[in-house]
Design a protein around this nucleic acid. Structure first.
Lengths: 207, 207
DNA sequence: TTTAACTTGTGAATGAATTCACAAGCGCAT
DNA sequence: ATGCGCTTGTGAATTCATTCACAAGTTAAA
């Protein structure tokens, strides 16, 4: 398949959210223009994004809301369940563990891991906290697909290497550091410091 | 000034992090190539990024670490302090309140706000939780520059409007929703659901 | 059946970001 | 002083992403 840009995938994800809203309100069709207005983009962009995957609309009418949302879920891989593990049972890990958006979209958090003996054996928002020492064993046994990394910056790269060796192919990183991973592993980084600095730049450099 | 792309600002922010590392280790000069390797980019990209703001390097030698990091801090607006308020004293708010990266970079969290009477008057990681009803009054009095929005999705847009009317120009949004704001207001959104869906897409569509 | 009002899907055009490639400058060794 | 090895700064070339613009398809009304 032709390479799909990251920005395109993000927009698909946004479209799906609006479609679910529409579905909820009982509407059956939607035009690229309405979708665009919601997502802060243009109708041509919406149609182009969708055209990478097929043609789902009806000329003169628009898109069927249930059909398009179904297709988007397929495209994004949301028609299957993904098992998620959280590495690092700190505050951020806890905030994520209770975040309802995960389960709503087919991501189930199976366990959290930490190296602090006081945390191991307890639960984090109902999710068991296990010893990080057993991570390789658990990955082999339970085959989670996605790992969320909420460890201190200096521990992030070694932990990523360890997860990759154990067979993880998708990582959501919250440590404020640039990570290296082999090409078959996808890493997304959420860096709050970077976002804040973007705001600082905008505040400083506006005329 | 010429318009600077968002991607450029993000990279500058990454460069600064490495420079601080280098500074810490007592190194005095660095080449665009070393900076690039750390940041997962190319030396030409590093030089182009910096060239928008001046020429800071010495041919044949590279960049002075303390000088370049100082210049980047200026460019990013980090030589001044920014006051931050957190709107929504839930789990994410708490995780952010204790995040050390903020203070380290000159962002000080002055207060959190909530509408839950059980939370108002208490503290969140040492930060006072105040009644959201007094937000306009406080903004006028304390003039915070940045608001972090950690409220439920459906409350985000009305709250943004309220903050903008009260004089806020920079918003870091954690609600999983697309927000509309006037052009003089900068909004950055951190959307975990979107990142996860990006991983789901990558897992699904790899050959 | 014809017409009018819409809306899609998509090549072509434009615009933006990245990479190339090289002249020019700097430091060190000889 | 001269030459060599290294690195910057930057126009030009290229690649990537977005927007334009319109033929073709659909519905509904007359």
């Amino acid at each position: 398949m032709k390479h799909i840009a990251d920005s395109t995938v993000r927009r698909l994800s946004a479209y799906l959210r609006f479609l679910e809203d529409f579905e909820h309100r009982g509407l059956t069709t939607i035009s690229s223009d309405e979708l665009a207005k919601q997502g802060g983009t243009t109708s041509a962009q919406v149609r182009k994004d969708l055209s990478f995957f097929g043609s789902f609309g009806k000329r003169g009418l628009g898109y069927s809301v249930p059909e398009l949302s179904g297709r988007l879920r397929e495209i994004l891989g949301l028609s299957q369940h993904w098992r998620v593990i959280i590495i690092g049972a700190g505050k951020i890990g806890a905030a994520l563990a209770q975040y309802r958006g995960f389960r709503q979209r087919g991501f189930s958090i199976v366990a959290a891991y930490d190296n602090n003996p006081e945390k191991i054996g307890r639960t984090l928002e109902g999710i068991p906290v296990r010893d990080i020492a057993q991570i390789e064993h658990d990955i082999q046994r339970e085959a989670p697909e996605i790992a969320v990394l909420t460890v201190p910056a200096e521990a992030a790269q070694p932990m990523l290497d360890r997860l990759v060796r154990a067979g993880i192919h998708a990582i959501l990183n919250f440590a404020p550091t640039q990570l290296q991973a082999p090409p078959e592993v996808t890493v997304k980084t959420v860096n709050m410091a970077m976002e804040l600095e973007g705001l600082s730049f905008a505040l400083t450099n506006r005329e």
